[in-house]
Nucleic acid binder design. Structure first.
Lengths: 233, 233
DNA sequence: AACTCACAAATTGTCGACAATCTTAATTTA
DNA sequence: TAAATTAAGATTGTCGACAATTTGTGAGTT
């Protein structure tokens, strides 16, 4: 519970109200899989569990719906999103287009010190990776940080909100529950480096292309998990 | 109130609950400008006006926030979105990327009869345009229908939801309240025709490019309105 | 045995009231 | 006079209860 905080703090939500707290808690549990994907959500049960009224819980559910983690039907109820292969493709098509745009804009709009920060981050990850044999840390917090920084470098508030606050929760859910396999980590490192170089050279077109390719590779990686699961059954 | 229905029915929401009704009503009023952009929303006042409780109204407000029509601050309240030139750029950058993607996918995934329907729609608009000297109708319902059909032709459910249910409300708000000027209408017609041809030829790359260009032109058109307003002051 | 219908239980939608927070304006203080 | 403070008013957040709808069960019919 303490180590996961690092992953949640990237989109900076100041928790003011009770429903904020429930929203953040539920979001983590859904992303981690503690609340099972595809499962039905009982409002009375969860309200009791979090120690809040149903009104407060429903407020949180509304916001979870906004970031695609639950689906709602009138007079029927809420259901946690199901991680299907089809949805993975759909979401990653959208992600690729949006984050490609973000990367292109970042090449124009990032401040030199922000680019410098990106480079430091990458070096830092290189060391951490060596120590820990490049496993869970990099693929979780590290990669996330890298992408968030570039997105914010676009300086497009609407795009930042769309990606960081809405879409990325679902993407994280796929990555956490489906995971990454094999030698993806070191390859991703090289791809990140190439992207940074393109941004530093203000080559938006190239940066966009590299980011799209990077995301496609990430998608293919998760896709294999689905293929493996399908082969078993 | 009756003639605007045609514009609202494109994203097919079945109104079941009371908050559904309030949501649809408020959405129309915000898009049309009846509820002024940038204005503060008083929950008690609007609840009384729509004849529902505050809980029901708040449910509607949550959904309006999901489609970017209102902005919320904890313990402060809701405010209708303000139509600024900066936001126009940000939103249209996102729109261009997403609808470009939709158009590319549509070139692969649209059924022949759907393409045929698009062609018919365009012819129909050509006649209507001649009769009414190409004014309000085309730029409102007609253009909207054209874009919605292509988006749905992408067959990407996530993308469809993102564009039709979320982003397009704000785009419509800009178009309705800022409007289109001059000879844009007939030019848009030609652009639509070119896009349909590219889709029919399954040339996704071209279709994407043409759609992006078409959207850029539309953006530039609205932008001039802001420039005119700025020149006045 | 399968299908339909009706009833009961549970769940969601809605309401009005209270608590917590913010805003505003008057009052005090430097 | 201007800034800071405090108190009153208004607004939002939260709660528990009731109403409306759906779901599940079981009796009855074909």
């Amino acid at each position: 519970m303490t180590e996961q905080k690092a992953n949640d703090n990237y989109n900076d939500i100041t928790i003011t109200t009770a429903s904020d707290q429930v929203f953040v808690d539920m979001r983590r549990e859904i992303v981690q899989g503690t609340i099972e994907q595809g499962s039905k959500i009982s409002e009375p049960e969860l309200a009791k569990r979090y120690g809040v009224s149903r009104a407060t819980l429903r407020e949180a559910l509304n916001r979870l719906e906004s970031c695609y983690l639950v689906e709602r039907k009138a007079n029927v109820g809420c259901r946690v999103v199901a991680l299907t292969a089809e949805r993975l493709i759909e979401v990653y098509q959208v992600r690729s287009a949006l984050e490609g745009l973000a990367c292109r804009l970042a090449a124009d709009n990032m401040e030199p010190e922000e680019v410098q920060g990106l480079k430091q981050l990458l070096n830092q990850h290189l060391q951490t990776q060596r120590v820990k044999e490049g496993e869970s840390y990099y693929q979780e917090a590290g990669d996330l940080d890298f992408h968030y920084r570039i997105i914010k470098g676009s300086k497009n508030a609407h795009l930042i909100h769309l990606l960081c606050n809405e879409l990325y929760q679902l993407i994280r859910m796929y990555r956490v529950q489906m995971g990454m396999v094999g030698p993806r980590v070191s390859k991703a490192f090289d791809e990140h480096l190439a992207i940074i170089n393109a941004i530093e050279n203000h080559d938006g077109e190239l940066a966009e292309m590299l980011m799209k390719r990077h995301i496609s590779a990430s998608q293919a990686n998760i896709q294999t998990k689905f293929d493996l699961l399908a082969a078993k059954n």
